[in-house]
Simulated assay, not measured.
Amino acid sequence: MASSDPPEIPDYKTEFLQSCLSANVLTFGNFTLKSGRVSPYFFNAGLFHTGSLLRSISTAYAYSIIDFLSNTQSPPQDFDVLFGPAYKGIPLACATVSALTALAPARFSSLSYSFNRKEAKTHGEAGSIVGAPLRGKRVVIIDDVITAGTAMREAIGIIEAEGGVLVGVIVALDRMERMPGSGDGAADRGSAIGEIRKRYGVPVLSIVTLDDLVGLLRGKGDEGDLKRLEGYREKWLATD
């Protein structure tokens, strides 16, 4: 039946998910998350530490950004700085700026990256920002996932304190689940990504979503993993 067919997704998303699976960045089992939930899958972007894997994730980020900028009718259409929160966001920002420049040099050759120090430097150039200064710049944050939104709000606070203007966020995976600690009422079933969108009025992109992963497993995954994943999605799916 057509309804059971896996949804078609762009090749770069499929290739990204395959890279995640082959490198055990994405694994299946029983994982207790920081929120206390027991998840049937775990995503660890810290394992993208080889040249080929870093190229895979940065290229997927780049294609996601280009697709959004090409298809959206809402401003802003461009940005000045890709900001990677310390620590996981640092290599992601650097590599993705390089990937964007390689894919669309006319548009992105002047794009900068920036990241924060965990502790402000008190000598030399001083300050807490490395890379491009943020004052007056249109900034997109890049990170791996948003779970509760705490780290993302901290990053936004840094950008605002430095005089930057947040215009978007991109993550590798949208888990599509409601925030930890939320209740059972319909009004309490929003996701951390949805909360960021509403609170700051900016687009929040992802390379892939939980639905993409379910679609991939329907096509060629383990039946047991698929059933557990679908059950988890049904239990915790956010309303936004």
Rank of each mutant, 00 (worst) to 15 (best):
D67T: 09
L54N: 09
S110Y: 02
G164W: 10
G84W: 00
V145C: 13
L92A: 08
S58G: 13
H123L: 08
G124Y: 08
N116I: 12
A99S: 13
H49W: 00
S98D: 11
G164L: 09
G164D: 07
V97I: 04
A62G: 07
E154S: 11
I159T: 04
E160C: 00
G149D: 10
Y63Q: 14
R55H: 14
L134E: 05
R107Q: 15
P133G: 09
H123S: 10
S74F: 03
S112I: 00
S58D: 11
L69Q: 15
G51S: 09
S114I: 11
P133L: 03
N71G: 10
L166I: 14
Y61M: 07
A62H: 06
T59F: 09
K121R: 02
Q77D: 09
T96V: 12
I141K: 05
A93E: 01
V145T: 15
Y87S: 11
E160H: 04
A151G: 12
A161M: 00
L100H: 03
V139H: 05
I90E: 07
D80C: 12
A104S: 15
L100R: 05
G136P: 12
Q73W: 02
S74I: 14
I146M: 07
E119K: 14
K88L: 11
T150R: 01
A120H: 01
R55T: 15
R55F: 07
F83C: 08
F108L: 08
V140C: 13
K121V: 13
A132C: 15
G163F: 06
A126Q: 13
V145G: 05
T122K: 14
T150E: 01
T96Y: 01
S70G: 07
I90D: 08
V81D: 06
D80F: 10
K88G: 10
S52K: 09
I156R: 03
S110D: 13
D67F: 11
I90N: 10
G51F: 00
V97K: 08
G89N: 01
I129H: 06
Y87I: 09
I158M: 04
K121I: 14
T101H: 10
G127D: 08
L166D: 03
R55K: 15
D143T: 10
P76D: 12
L134A: 01
N116K: 06
L111D: 02
A120E: 15
I158H: 02
P105M: 01
L92G: 10
V81K: 03
N116A: 11
D144E: 13
E125K: 11
V165D: 07
A151T: 12
G89H: 01
G131Q: 04
M152R: 00
